[in-house]
Design a protein around this nucleic acid. Sequence first.
RNA 1: GCCGGAAUAGCUCAGUGGCAGAGCGCUCGCCUUGUAAGCGAGGGGUCGUGGGUUCAAAUCCCACUUCCGGCUCCA
Length: 642
Amino acid sequence: MAEAVKVLIQDEAGQEEVLVESSAPLAAVVPGQDPSVLAARVADGVVDLTRPVGDARQVRLLRFADAEGRRVFRHSSAHLLAQAVKRLWPDARLGTGPALEDGYYYDLNLPVPLAESDLGRLEAAMREIAAEALPIRREELSRDQALRLFRERGETFKQQIVERIPDGTPISVYRQGEFVDLCAGPHVPHTGVLQAIKLTSVSGAYWRGDEHEPMMTRVYGTSFPSEAQLEEHLERIEEAKRRDHRQLGQQLGLFQFREESPGFVFWLPKGLRLFRRIEEVSRVLQEPLGYEEVSTPWIYKDVLWKRSGHWDHYQDNMFLVERGDEHLGVKPMNCPGHALLFGSTVRSYRELPVKWAEYGPLSRFERSGTLHGLLRVRGFHQDDAHLFVRPQQIQEQISEVLDLVDRVYALFGMTVEVVFSTRPDDYLGELETWEDAEGQLRAALAAWGRPYQLNPGDGAFYGPKLDFNAIDSLGRRWQTSTVQLDYQMPQQLDISYVEQDGSRQRPVMIHRAVLGSVERFIGILTEHYAGDFPLWLAPLQVRVVPVTDDEAARARQLVEDMRSAGLRAEVDERSEKLGKKIRDGQLDKVPVLLVVGAREREAGTVSVRSRSGDNGVYDWPTYLGQLGASAAIPTSPSASPR
RNA sequence: GCCGGAAUAGCUCAGUGGCAGAGCGCUCGCCUUGUAAGCGAGGGGUCGUGGGUUCAAAUCCCACUUCCGGCUCCA
């Protein structure tokens, strides 16, 4: 009972209305059978082009350029990968294979270990299947039919998934040639659409993400409609690799890691200059807000950790020391120490808020496989502070921290995103207190006036929190810090202040770190700037390059002038060609190279070369003044020169 | 911690069972340089550590350490 219906086709170019049989597949409404159309969005969601038009009256055509079209393309690529694996290893059992932002993966249980060197073979098999242009067909089954199908095929993992689907839910599978996969879809019309394919890596992944479940082999890949787009993507990956802070740290002589102390950083002089500069930024910006620095012990007896709750909740992440009868723990956080100091004397409400900062070393025993350059270490420093406040001061103090976060990240040309995590199911304390705290956080966020993401139920058991993601120059997100309200620590360590009415009250502790770990932050900054630190931050700001050995004396004089002005400068005195010294200066990513020869000496000038090239000749005393000014921390972002 | 891979000179890497190599860096000498690599010579190695197989191991096998890609974790 085919009936002709009017369908409105929407495409990026515009829309048109066509008349089509309702029993025809959606593909029939695609103008000119355009092969770049991968799927369609109708009222029910994104669907296959093989689906009948049915009662759809508005159809949006999806291509690779659409995020939804891209997901379909990548998901079909994952099926292609799984099919290729099954052709090479028929005993392989399928797990799951979703699309990712930039590609896809498939988790499989394989009879043999798979190495990255096997990926070429696998890619070849994928290309073969693509060349076969197998039609991809959807089938709907009952739960029993699906169970039987996957049991017959020995797909035990798929069986597990089906078993978890409630009875009565329609189940879909997709077939392409000999391959069948349990899948909600949708998919591209046939495998020939999947043109440019690349498998990128292979690794292990727990089944269902649970470390008690078996380990699957996960193969990662990406795919594009054309080789040119694939090339472009691989080029972006190369760019990210060139920015890898571990590589730049080695190349620029900033820091090292050594086998003798896994997870701890060896800072070289240049790296430590960066480190100190970052700390300076933190101090300069927060001291006017009434922060004061304290220094507390880094090893405490188990008694303290038991009182603070770390012994029960955090012991696995602590370095423990046993010395005779004493059990000691190296601090993973500053809060208990700060709370002890706060409680060491009677505090009046007049003193609050108390804001104590500490940059000292923290140690956390991270599992060996989680260490990653500066981004995940066992020994680090935070721009940590604890605010002891009266409950009614929460909002104003959070607002102040939000403002500080904005100003700090603006210095580095980064913005932040905020995630607000609220009361979890297993919360401690009074419901009323929680509601008040969350209300104050919400008010502070509203005053801040920017959108934020809500993460209900993801707060800490002791209080709600705000997480910050910094966004770098490549658009990548990095979790840098959290601001957490804590009602438990003051109680556990029994600290209080005297209220206006003479009563003893518990302060609320606000844990906050703006940069988070300084180590991690430097790793992020290195990648953000690709090692081209701005002048005010660069470990070496100026290198003087004498044209001949005869100019070395003046070059040294210039460096002395600069050092007196507080600049970080040095001379390249090697007996090398000018071109060589320029090249090395560029490779060392020095912001300013001053070329000085006989001409400059006679005229009292310097020839300036920045990272972008020759900047011309300047009068030395004038230029020195300018340099000094632009090398200062640009506390007002508009005044920040790169 | 788990899965897979890797470890050779200071750095980046070549070397698949038979005398340990290259480029850069380093030292010395020559050159005296004008905006991205001047020339020559020299020094430099427990081939990650320990065990095994073999007439013979950087190379094959086992264990450990560390790193890399992920997973898990990151109150």
